[in-house]
Write a protein that binds this DNA or RNA. Structure first.
Lengths: 124, 124
DNA sequence: CATCTATGTTGACACATGTCGAATCAAAGC
DNA sequence: GCTTTGATTCGACATGTGTCAACATAGATG
């Protein structure tokens, strides 16, 4: 499934983790992004660029305990396979992580991501 | 061109302006987004979800004087019609505005946008 | 083991999107 | 007016994306 052209940006520690994570680039307003920076950063924005994914992400991010079971958030108006597909996309973009505990699979927001993306947009 | 289903969110003052602007939604972490909130917000993220557009946006946002002529930023590795196409998308998403002055067309970042998007991502 | 429930994967399909060359428009200068 | 230069629009094409039904997998429980 990793048809994503392996970008060695952060430490690839886990080996099974998401393809990329955030702390990569200066604020968008600091200087023009290079092609590589844009490639990396666009992946995250793109992941949030779909209404269903944005709702899923928001549902996880705002859920009590910092994590949510799929069953808690899958009421977004599309079929269950489609929910699964979008959650996978969010994982591949490095925005979410998942863990199976017993019957259910729990998703949580990759901690540093929100802050990192926020920093991209804050000229300050 | 306006195949976008007219969303009456901000004051449509100008009549010729972009389709939507930012100050719409609480932080992503506050509560699950509604379908409408997601629809609106995803449009902006989607606009920044392409590497070429991200470079163009960054180039404008970081340019001296707060604005840039197309000729200043069109060196992003794609043809000039494609640059124009992406700038149009950024305009339609409400992220950029454009103005022709004599021979050249200048683009600038819609002022409130960066702060608004930043606020979406800052749990604070 | 059989079965049920919760998620994920596959295959297929319609539709959106990024790209380019060619044509067009807009302003400036001859 | 014609020509030149900057920028957008048009038409076409290949690729990407969101969606679902059908199938597969993982645990739990009988």
């Amino acid at each position: 499934m990793s048809n994503i052209k392996a970008l060695p940006l952060l430490e690839p520690e886990t080996g099974s983790g998401p393809e990329s994570v955030a702390p990569c680039c200066p604020p968008l307003t600091e200087r023009p992004f290079t092609a590589e920076e844009a490639e990396r950063t666009a992946r995250m924005f793109k992941a949030l660029g779909d209404p269903v994914r944005l709702r899923l992400f928001s549902a996880v991010a705002s859920h009590a305990g910092g994590e949510a079971c799929v069953c808690d958030i899958s009421d977004v108006g599309v079929s269950q396979p489609t929910v699964s597909h979008h959650l996978k996309k969010l994982k591949e973009a490095g925005l979410l992580t998942s863990e199976r505990r017993g019957t259910w699979v729990y998703y949580r927001v990759e901690p540093s991501v929100l802050a990192s993306m926020g920093r991209l947009l804050t000229s300050e």
